Amino acid sequence: MLIRITNTPRPYAWGSTTAIADLLGTDPSGGPEAELWLGAHPGSPARIVEGAAEDDLAQWAAAHAPGGRLPFLLKVLAASAPLSLQAHPTAEQARAGFERENAAGVPLDDPARNYRDPYAKPELLVALSDPFRALCGFRPVAEARDDLAALDDARLAPLLERLTDDVLPQVVAWLIARSPGVDAIIAALTEQAAAQGELPHRPDWLDTVARLSAHHPGDPGIAVSVLMRTVILRPGEALYLPAGNIHAYLDGLGLELMEASDNVLRGGLTPKHVDVPELMRVLDARPLPPPLLEPEHPRPGIAVYRPEGVPLSLTVMEAAALIEGVDARLDGPAIILCLDGAVTLGEHGEHGELRRGEAALVAEEQTLRIVGTGRIAIASS
């Protein structure tokens, strides 16, 4: 069974006004278009165009999918401003938090609620734009100390005095809570980034400070960012963000695949609720290597992004592979999005054609013949 689907991009303020429309060949709305959701998540379920009696994939999943849900969510993400600084819980933390807030009678739509479902939310992102910028995870403390000390600004002394390997979590909590002295640190970083903006090669971390200051002046997330890794991706490069990884996408266009959850613990760069103690409970505050995800290449023109031990898989197929035809093995429900050109589905084209900007859910396990001159993404769990 093949179900043709569509959706309307989410109009979050940080979204680009043109990137999603330019990618998919659709008419821009005139406002920000931040995320196109292709899945059954109740926050914005994909609408069914053809192939099923239900109105949307949430209704379809409730009636036909195992457990009544589609466990993955594919997004086209287009950021022209930084997203909130955030981390996601493990499955165990999500279940416990969801049950705890339910028992306390916190409504699901309460802005102060942390856990809106009992699921984890690991996610991967594949860059489509050049560049795609992100903050993700903590860099070595010694590296951050050296960069801060080189600014030679007395207002940064309280941060430098606290900043050692064994107290990084406490320093992060101190900054996010805007403790005494933090406002002066934020001001110093903002001024230093502005002053060095005239240099030919401003360091990436200071460039991030300048970007964050422009969009979120005075926010504690500016200070947290100097302890984090600024990662710049080129098209086809990818990140995998497991539970506990603190991150924020800064700008760019990409494909994002995640487990279908809405559990976000925020740490700044947002007017939304920030629960510092709960964030610190889920946060992995260890310096780690950049969380780059290397794809598999089963044949030229095919890249498979599949984090180890996580039920997520995103495959990007280029025209170089599709023109000869690909037999795609789908072990369960999968969503296909045509990014360019057109492809024919089925051994004899019996499932029709997908053109640029069109998407479909393949509802059953099967080997699907795909032929064409376009580029597609296939998301599955």
Rank of each mutant, 00 (worst) to 15 (best):
A61R: 08
A81W: 00
A52V: 02
L212W: 05
A260R: 02
I222A: 08
D110A: 15
S80T: 00
V316E: 08
D22N: 15
T270I: 07
L292Q: 10
P42E: 13
A78D: 00
K75T: 04
P45Q: 14
H216T: 02
Q366H: 12
L24Y: 12
E99H: 08
V362D: 05
I246R: 01
A150T: 02
M317H: 06
A58E: 13
E161P: 03
L77Y: 01
I370Y: 06
A260G: 00
L125N: 07
L361T: 10
V226R: 07
A127H: 00
L293M: 00
V209S: 02
G68E: 08
A173S: 09
A248I: 02
G51F: 12
N102C: 12
L83A: 03
E92H: 14
R178G: 02
I222W: 01
A223W: 00
L206H: 07
I323W: 04
R139W: 08
P180A: 14
L368C: 13
T18W: 12
L189D: 04
A78F: 00
A87D: 06
G218H: 09
G325P: 10
R178T: 12
D284F: 09
L125V: 15
L257E: 04
Y249Q: 01
A328D: 13
D327Y: 06
E191S: 15
A53V: 09
A360V: 04
H41A: 13
S129P: 11
A184E: 14
V76C: 06
V274L: 10
L24A: 13
H216R: 00
A177L: 01
L175E: 03
L206G: 08
I3V: 04
R100M: 08
G309Q: 13
P11G: 05
P289H: 15
A193L: 11
L337H: 07
L168N: 04
P271S: 14
E92G: 05
A379W: 02
P200F: 06
G309M: 15
T17P: 05
H88E: 07
G349P: 05
H64I: 09
P300K: 08
I185S: 00
V171H: 04
R286F: 11
P118W: 13
S80C: 02
E198S: 15
S213K: 03
A173R: 04
L163F: 05
H273G: 10
Y305Q: 12
L163R: 00
S29R: 10
R4C: 04
S381V: 10
R10A: 03
E143T: 15
T315V: 15
A303R: 14
E294S: 11
L124S: 06
F132A: 03
E358P: 05
A285T: 12
